[in-house]
Simulated scan of single mutants.
Amino acid sequence: MMRARRLLLALLAGLLLAGLVEGSIFKLPVPPPQHRYGDLVIDRVSTKAGQKPVFFSHWTHRTRYTCRVCHFELGFDFKVNRTEITEQANREGMYCGTCHDGVVAFGPTDENCARCHTGKAEIDKQSFLKLQRTLPPTGFGNGINWTRALQKGLITPKYSIYRPEEKPLDFNKRLELKANWSMVTPAIFDHATHVPWLDCANCHPDIFNIKKKTTKHFEMRYILEGKFCGVCHLDVAFPLDECELCHPGIRQR
Rank of each mutant, 00 (worst) to 15 (best):
S127H: 14
Q34G: 14
L245H: 00
G107Y: 08
D235M: 11
G38E: 03
W181H: 15
M220S: 09
F78C: 08
C116T: 06
E122V: 01
G38H: 01
N172D: 14
C116V: 08
Y37R: 01
G249M: 00
Y222Q: 12
C200K: 12
C113I: 13
R6H: 02
V236E: 03
D110Q: 10
P157F: 05
P186W: 00
L245P: 04
C96L: 03
M2L: 15
D235K: 14
D206Y: 11
D170M: 09
F140R: 11
L131E: 08
C229H: 06
A149M: 00
C229Y: 01
I25S: 10
V236N: 02
G249C: 06
G102E: 07
K227L: 00
Q126G: 06
A179G: 04
V54I: 13
F106T: 09
I155N: 04
H117E: 09
P136K: 04
F208P: 01
F218Q: 01
Y65C: 08
V184Q: 04
D206P: 01
Y95M: 10
L15M: 02
R163T: 03
L234H: 07
N90L: 09
K27S: 06
G143D: 06
M1K: 15
T185M: 07
F208L: 13
N202P: 05
L15H: 11
L198C: 15
H100L: 07
L11M: 14
P53V: 01
R36N: 06
D206I: 05
P239A: 08
A179L: 08
P29S: 13
P137Y: 12
A4G: 12
